[in-house]
């Protein structure tokens, strides 16, 4: 569990509290026999803050973007496999040298 997940949970809790406040406000309007036009200001502020927190959580919690280019620093091969005896370079493929500039 990390910060993004906690922020997302906190945002959902704020939205839940905003929903509960709106339910209370609707009950109050029923008592006063008035029509519902929009939620009160504090509920709107809670909704905006909840949306901002959930937006931040949605952009951080699912994970980072990884580079798709094989020659970037993130995709460097930093170790060789254990079975080095099976790595044979002298085969018929040497007639077609690869054009990929791999960094090892």
């Amino acid at each position: 569990m990390n910060l993004g997940f906690l922020v997302g949970v906190f945002g959902v809790l704020i939205l839940s509290h905003a929903a509960y406040s709106t339910i209370q406000y609707r009950g109050l309007l029923k008592i006063m026999e008035e029509e519902f036009s929009r939620p009160p200001i504090n509920v709107i502020l809670e909704l905006i803050i909840g949306l901002a927190l959930c937006m931040w959580a949605a952009l951080t919690f699912p994970g980072k973007f990884l580079s798709i280019h094989p020659d970037s620093d993130e995709n460097r091969a930093v170790f060789l496999p254990d079975n080095s005896d099976f790595m044979i370079f002298n085969h018929r493929g040497r007639l077609f040298p690869p054009q990929i500039d791999m960094k090892f």
Partner: peptide, 17 residues
């Protein structure tokens, strides 16, 4: 990210009315 924010947007739209 988009799925989670779709759900959150739905909840917000419902609460606002």
């Amino acid at each position: 990210s988009r799925t989670f924010l779709s759900i959150i947007a739905g909840v917000l739209a419902g609460i606002i009315g």
